[in-house]
């Protein structure tokens, strides 16, 4: 009897807990983008390529789906102090104007263009944290114009993982903390699946304007045989990243070396002090304390942050994935060409 009683109370509590946690936040599952937003992003990013541009995403947050229904571009920032205020006023003006024509004026994140996927930087994380302060749920859409020339819609929706954000707020990237949280470089960014939606009106127009063509520009781009420049650039970036990573590693080695040196120094000092104390005891004097904060060898060596190396590692993994993808495409293309030639 008592047994069943306790079990029911735990059940009740667990239901309550479940209800409470569900109310707090249902996880973001899907980002649903309107075709209009995709075209706007592409237009903006392409026109200014290879310069990198950003813009604001507007939309609605519906349960586990984040709908992106509109966006507007930011002007390219100049290195000016006064520009900060101007950019903010531009943003406000634009949102006011868009609200007047009934566009959802609810900021849900931002988009930015990238060059070969080299977007994983500290700046991105900082922007994320800024946005996150104001909006509970925000995403970053990354568009890569260089990859789009190969017939891929290189669109990605990213967000920072919660555990990473917590860690970033406390600004503590020591090895110990990371191990505690069990956070590795894979867990910094979370990619969210993208859905594309169009209004029925647009779908009607598109069907009207473009009859089903057997081949599209997209197919031409995909069947293009020369992807070597792309691969070469990717490799170059990868090599640069490796250099950076080895620099980071040297930093760590230096840190560990100085740490172990300090520890041995501390041990030597302690032994000396103990011997001294034993001598003093024998002589009937008060023993000296076994710690001396004033001594420079007790000052802790600052541990370098692991954030940079994490980001670089992420970047490298990204390049590797891209190379794999393109190489895979190349294989299919080459085999296709071979088959065609034999025919």
């Amino acid at each position: 009897m008592a047994n069943t009683n306790t079990s029911t109370t735990t059940m009740a509590r667990s239901f309550l807990q479940v209800a409470a946690t569900e109310e707090v936040a249902s996880p973001l599952r899907v980002v649903q983008i309107e075709g209009l937003v995709i075209l706007k992003i592409i237009k903006h990013c392409k026109e200014f390529s290879p310069a990198l541009v950003t813009g604001q995403l507007l939309g609605l947050d519906v349960g586990s789906v984040l709908e992106l229904t509109n966006c507007f571009p930011f002007p390219i920032r100049e290195e000016d102090e006064e520009n900060e205020g101007e950019g903010a006023s531009y943003q406000l003006d634009m949102m006011k104007c868009l609200r007047e024509v009934n566009v959802d004026n609810n900021t849900v994140g931002w988009y930015q263009s990238t060059l070969l996927g080299s977007f994983q930087t500290v700046e991105l994380i900082e922007t994320f944290m800024n946005y996150q302060e104001n909006i509970r749920r925000c995403v970053c859409i990354i568009y890569d114009p260089s990859r789009s020339n190969q017939g891929v819609l290189a669109l990605k929706a990213l967000k920072l993982s919660d555990s990473f954000m917590e860690l970033y707020r406390s600004n503590n990237f020591t090895g110990e903390k990371l191990r505690e949280k069990n956070l590795s470089w894979v867990d910094i960014f979370e990619e969210i699946p993208i859905k594309v939606s169009n209004s029925a009106l647009i779908s009607a127009f598109m069907t009207e304007l473009e009859a089903d063509t057997p081949v599209t520009q997209c197919d031409y781009d995909r069947l293009q045989l020369s992807s070597n420049p792309f691969l070469e650039r990717n490799m170059e970036f990868l090599i640069e990243c490796m250099d950076d990573l080895s620099m980071e590693q040297q930093k760590f080695q230096f840190y560990y070396r100085s740490l172990s040196r300090q520890q041995s120094q501390q041990q030597a000092w302690l032994q000396k002090r103990r011997a001294e104390n034993a001598a003093r005891k024998a002589a009937g004097e008060e023993p000296l304390p076994e710690e001396d904060p004033a001594n420079p060898i007790f000052k802790p060596v600052p541990e370098p942050s692991r954030l940079d190396s994490f980001l670089i590692t992420n970047q490298m993994a990204n390049y590797c994935n891209q190379i794999n993808g393109v190489a895979g495409q190349n294989f299919s293309r080459l085999h296709l060409m071979k088959a065609l030639h034999e025919n």
Partner: peptide
Amino acid sequence: AERVGFDILKTTMVDKLQNDL
């Protein structure tokens, strides 16, 4: 629009973007 692919602009809902392969 062709570069994006009509497939995603024509229908009212696409669940997943195509990857490279």
